[in-house]
Design a protein around this nucleic acid. Structure first.
Lengths: 359, 359
DNA sequence: CTGTTAGCGCTTTCAT
DNA sequence: ATGAAAGCGCTAACAG
């Protein structure tokens, strides 16, 4: 009875013991040298123990470990970074930090990075290729060890160029070199899934609200829609395919346009969930019921789609998995390891906005 | 006619000129010393020009600038950080990276940081004090220059303790020292606003879905609700005050509980928007209309609240401003400057889920 | 105004 | 197995 919202497992983590007093001594941070003195060994020995670089006698090891604990020492990351040429930081480029779409993916990345010692710096490209390039440069200048690019607007060549500096993994594109990896979901398949679902319910006049122009994901979804139509022997009617941009407002406008120009349609397939929300509102404003009068389907399965009124039928994208997989792949690239990725398939999530066409 | 969704201005930034070829030479990054050699000056001179630390003759300055441009030099942040003891990084602690609530605030922070040279590392506390402490320690170990804590679960004392290491600004608490600043919205006022709105519409039986136990924001909202009731001479009825936890599911469960135990109420005030979404769905499932049968009001004004069906009446929290102000304040603290903050007041946003009680 | 000289805190040969 | 010494790339006295 409860709607199943998409979301990664949120660990109700129960970190045990933590003594606030421990590290909260506000004196200047201890250095490795001080630890060495305290333990009566050389700095190198401390370093060796810290990094497991070489064998150290149990006696000294014990002394050093003691000193470390006693002095509450932690190595200075800047110094390590400077020395090793690795910052233990990765850069993440999203398009909009305040978008549920990216959030889920970030969550997956977060999970994968947790406990690896890597931290991440997140920047926004704002769907703008020039800004995106600018931000990637910034990350590179900051010496990140690798980059995850989510739904970038830049060309594959640019990605390849950047990958010469640091390994990079990108979603939404097919790519595979030693230092760059791109993988994408099968948008066309997903769109066919959605369209076929509608067709199976008896719909023949299915409106489509597109994504932004020149956006690969958007284009492929449109193409999947067309294919499914063709396969079912339904003529493609450009009059009921209207422009959107993946945001709520565009869905609202598009639907209102459809309605006001008196197009004939019994179902709407919005290129993403956000857009479907807007469509839903437009329908509501006109007093048109969903799904009784019009069926509605989205794409993405954002967490909130399980709580719309009524809950939205949509195509689930494994956002969180994608994030996790991207991060793991990047870690491999950074280590020079081979990567092989496979992401879970898209699946149709039938909720309550689609209904068999009566009669 | 279009709903107004809360959101910061999303700059459709038009960064001009960018020559990909410029920085994409994958050779090892240039160092300041090489620049100095190329320009025929000493490293210090280059450093001076870079930092504006001292006067330099036009001639040498020109030579250095030329060399910098020619060699496409950018100083190594790790080296700078090690030397200056400043990493130009700030740490942000959210509770959930994938929550629209935090997103808007992050967006504000992002805006404030943009162009300052500071980058941010975001970590999640997952509403868990122990984990939060752990994460803050992590940030401190990473040598962030300051911390922004959003809706932390830790005590004020802990914050004060941490602030001895690095400046910290926190939302959701009142605090003001040399190195720590906390500011909060007037939850009680906001809750009164919401409750009064309902009362003015003629409602006398107003159910309330609480936030998580021991959560300051939640407690204060409950208290505001009670106050407004008392002011209107309406008896407080604990039977229609039910537990929630700020998430959709709890709103759904709470409302279902209200309905199944046959409580008498004509309106629901949910302690936050997410919770209101769940309530909305519960009502929908039972075939109860909003706002005709039951009025519903939330708290926060998340961006998506303008697109629910019907659009949600709620109390707007200036999330984005809060983020911006927090970041600016932190920057001031870091510089040792005085800070004075004032955040915009909460305001009632009347949309379409509340209605005058007929009778 | 400018160059020389020490390091920031750590890792890593290179000896022993 | 361990210590001494030489930097990573940059900045900040300190002398001129």
């Amino acid at each position: 009875m409860l709607p199943t919202a998409q979301s990664c497992p949120r660990p109700s983590s129960t970190l045990a013991r933590f003594h606030l007093s421990d590290t909260l001594t506000p004196n200047a941070p201890t250095t490795l040298i001080e630890v060495a003195q305290q333990a009566g060994v050389s700095p190198s020995t401390v370093s060796r123990i810290l990094n497991g670089t070489a064998k150290v006698s149990d006696e000294k090891r014990r002394a050093v470990l003691d000193a470390i604990a006693k002095m509450n020492f932690a190595p200075n990351p800047m110094a390590q970074a400077l020395k090793k040429g690795k910052s233990m930081t990765i850069g993440i480029v999203v398009q909009d930090i305040a978008s549920p779409f990216f959030d889920e993916t970030l969550h997956g990345i977060d999970q994968a990075l947790n406990g690896t010692g890597y931290a991440s710096v997140i920047v926004s490209g704002h769907w703008n290729a020039a800004e995106e390039i600018d931000r990637i440069r910034l990350l590179l200048a900051r010496k990140v060890d690798g980059i995850i690019l989510l739904s970038g607007r830049i060309t594959d060549e640019s990605v390849l160029q950047f990958s010469k500096h640091k390994p990079i993994v990108s979603t939404g594109r097919a790519l595979q070199t030693e230092r760059a990896l791109g993988f994408k979901i099968d948008n066309e398949y997903g769109a066919r899934l959605a369209t076929q679902h509608l067709i199976e319910l008896g719909h023949r006049h299915i409106a489509f609200i597109t994504g932004p122009a020149n956006h690969t994901d958007a284009d492929e979804r449109l193409s999947g829609y067309k294919k499914a139509l063709a396969e079912a022997g339904i003529a493609y009617n450009p009059k009921i395919v209207v422009d959107g941009d993946f945001h709520e407002n565009s869905g609202l406008r598009a639907t209102t346009h459809l309605l006001e120009t008196k197009q004939k349609f019994t179902a709407i397939f919005a290129a993403n969930d956000l857009c479907a929300y807007g469509a839903r509102l437009s329908l509501y404003r006109k007093g048109i019921r969903v799904p009784e009068d019009i069926s509605l389907i989205g794409f993405d399965d954002l967490p909130s789609s399980a709580y719309t009124t009524p809950p939205l039928t949509t195509v689930r994208q494994p956002l969180c998995d994608i994030g996790r997989i991207a991060a793991q792949a990047l870690l491999h690239l950074i280590n020079g390891d081979a990567v092989e990725t496979s992401i879970p398939p898209l699946e149709l999530v039938v909720r309550e906005t689609t209904k068999r066409l009566k009669n």
